[in-house]
Design a protein around this nucleic acid. Structure first.
Length: 370
DNA sequence: CGCGCGCTGATTCTTGATTG
DNA sequence: CAATCAAGAATCAGCGCGCG
């Protein structure tokens, strides 16, 4: 084990672990960055084993802080701790959704080439394969191919003051399965598009807004308005966002000091009665149809939803015209959320920065299925 | 009442495509 | 060819709840 104040990970030797005291540690806490192969479950075990090596210097495996779910090696009689983090010097890790794509494709190949029975010996996702083939029966799967290599841009578009989510900046359309597809499955009758979603935060659309809400509008004097930005105004109108409150969320944001305890952002919650037709027309283009939504959840289960034109009609129908708008106050967070309830989904629209900055770069539509 | 765990709000990472 | 944008989703940390 090497201890270093600042260490260049690109020059790190393999199989060596490094202690990095972060700025926030104030000399009492060490963070141990483990290789990516250590999962959340393996970290406590690693620390437990490590504590044995420190037994002679009173190192004890325990939960380091009250209200913390993260275990650590604590040194009794001192305020020194060793905490474990996941990836060397980084925050979020690699994209495991791509792996899901490959594994599912391999399952299809197994089925096409060898027609194996649906069990865990033959498939990574036997339940999915069985359910899918039953769903499309009597159609037969002939081939499957990966088509999701490219990130199809889906920027916001407008006709009049009607917002829509486009495909590559094109005209309004809702039959967008081909554009959303990650894997195409060809049967004896047609091509079925599979849109694969992975994890707990799932999103229908995620469009850039850097040009819709220009940075200088925030950085200029406080009375700069978005009146001359038609699409910004259309977004405000569709979701009932107050431009002044919106702007203030981002300009007032206060960067937390290193080591400062984060608290849940207090919010000013407002309600707005949406124009049903406008909102539903927007949602229809965000969700779209002509594909199958395949979601691998955090418990390893895949759920399939056939996104037909008929289903989309239900999915886009507002349960209530009431939209909830959340404005974080006092510089507590840099995002504005708009919650829309439809008959099939809770849609969590949000405008925020996704690129380690302050001002909005994206509008997203996260969803939870009902 | 302390601890462990699950849930979820919040942030920003990585990769690939596009633009200047 | 470098910078930026878009897409997709990973990780961190706080909070609440249940258990002993």
């Amino acid at each position: 084990i090497q201890i270093s104040k600042s260490f260049d990970f690109t020059k790190a030797k393999k199989n060596t672990y490094y202690f990095i005291p972060p700025a926030s540690a104030r000399g009492t806490e060490f963070l141990l960055y483990l290789p990516e192969s250590y999962t959340k479950q393996q970290r406590p075990k690693f620390l437990q084993d490590l504590s044995k090596k420190f037994a002679s210097v009173r190192g004890v495996f325990k939960t380091a802080h009250a209200n913390s779910s993260r275990p650590a090696v604590a040194f009794t009689g001192t305020n020194y701790y060793i905490n474990a983090k996941m990836v060397a010097g980084k925050q979020p890790g690699a994209n495991k959704g791509n792996a899901f794509e490959d594994v599912l494709l391999a399952d299809f190949q197994t089925y096409i080439e060898r027609g194996c029975p649906f069990n865990a010996k033959n498939y990574k996702y036997p339940k999915f394969m069985e359910e899918f083939t039953n769903m499309i029966a009597p159609e037969k799967v002939k081939s499957a191919r990966k088509v999701g290599q490219e990130n199809t841009p889906r920027p916001l578009g407008m006709t009049g003051d009607q917002l829509y989510v486009s495909v590559r900046g094109g005209a309004r359309q809702t039959k967008i399965g081909a554009a959303l597809s990650d894997i195409d499955v060809v049967t004896n009758k047609r091509t079925i598009h599979l849109s694969l979603k992975y994890g707990t935060t799932v999103t229908f659309m995620n469009a850039g807004v850097g040009k819709i809400f220009p940075k200088d509008k925030f950085e200029k004097n406080s009375d700069a308005s978005f009146d001359d930005m038609p699409m910004a105004m259309a977004i405000f109108k569709t979701f009932g966002i107050d431009p002044v409150k919106f702007r203030k969320v981002f300009t007032d944001y206060v960067e937390p000091a290193p080591g400062q305890k984060k608290t849940k952002a207090p919010k000013e919650i407002k309600f707005f009665k949406a124009d049903r037709l406008k909102m539903e027309n927007l949602i229809k283009t965000a969700i779209g149809y002509d594909y199958m939504l395949c979601h691998l959840d955090n418990k390893g289960e895949i759920h399939i939803q056939n996104m037909t034109e008929q289903y989309l009609r239900q999915a886009a129908t507002l349960e209530t015209e009431k939209v909830q708008i959340n404005y974080p106050i006092g510089g507590s967070a840099k995002r504005v959320d708009m919650v829309v309830e439809t008959k099939k989904f809770t849609l969590k629209w949000n405008i925020r920065n996704k690129q380690a900055g302050r001002y909005p770069t994206h509008i997203m539509c996260d969803y939870v299925m009902k």
